[in-house]
Amino acid sequence: MSYSVDLRKKVLKIREKEGLSIKQTAQRFHLSTASITRWLKRIEPAPCSSRRRKIDKEALIKDVEDYPDAYQRERAARFGVCPKAIWQALKRWGLTYKKNSASSQGRRRGTTAVPGKNR
């Protein structure tokens, strides 16, 4: 559970003012002792990472149309994200890759389905 920084500061200020132990503070505010202990070690939350989280939907659709046989790791390299981000975006937007059942094992062929586009 994530708590605001203001709540953390208030709880720790009251703890210090009243001289409460970690266990007493946890009981009074209905929190876990682990939360209080973590807050004592670091009041401010950890800074956000600088990784890129959003993928442009139109750019991804164009990439799927341009490179229908590309692996997700190849798309991830082009977009500068991890493969899981590509997988999640494809799933979220309903982009699918269907293997052609008539093709042989050694050949990678398939059709790409982009929702809302008739081919």
Results as ranks from 00 to 15, higher is better:
Lys9Asn: 14
Gln105Ala: 12
Leu20Thr: 09
Lys62Trp: 01
Arg53Trp: 12
Ser104Pro: 01
Tyr97Leu: 12
Ile86Leu: 11
Arg108Tyr: 03
Arg15Ser: 10
Pro83Asp: 00
Ala70Asp: 07
Tyr97Arg: 10
Gln27Glu: 15
Ala76Met: 12
Lys98Val: 02
Trp87Asn: 15
Lys99Ser: 09
Pro83Thr: 00
Lys99Thr: 11
Gln72Thr: 11
Arg8Pro: 01
Leu60Ile: 05
Gly106His: 15
Gln72Arg: 15
Arg78Gly: 04
Arg53Thr: 13
Ser103Asn: 10
Ile22Gly: 06
Glu58Tyr: 01
Ala113Trp: 06
Ala46Ile: 01
Ser21Met: 07
Lys41Asp: 06
Gly106Met: 10
Gly110Ile: 05
Ser103Pro: 01
Arg28Lys: 14
Ala85His: 14
Val114Glu: 00
Val5Tyr: 04
Phe79Arg: 04
Ser103Gln: 10
Gly116Gln: 07
Ile43Thr: 13
Leu7Lys: 09
Asp56Ser: 10
Ala85Arg: 15
Lys23Arg: 15
Ala102Ser: 15
Lys98Pro: 00
Lys13Asp: 05
Asp56Thr: 03
Glu58Trp: 03
Gly116Glu: 07
Arg28Ser: 04
Arg109Val: 08
Gln27Met: 12
Arg42Met: 02
Ala26Tyr: 06
Arg73Leu: 04
Phe29Arg: 11
Thr111Ile: 15
Gln27Phe: 11
Gln105Arg: 11
Lys41Val: 00
Glu74Val: 00
Lys54Ser: 15
Gly110Phe: 08
Lys99Asp: 08
Pro68Trp: 09
Lys23Asn: 14
Ala113Asn: 06
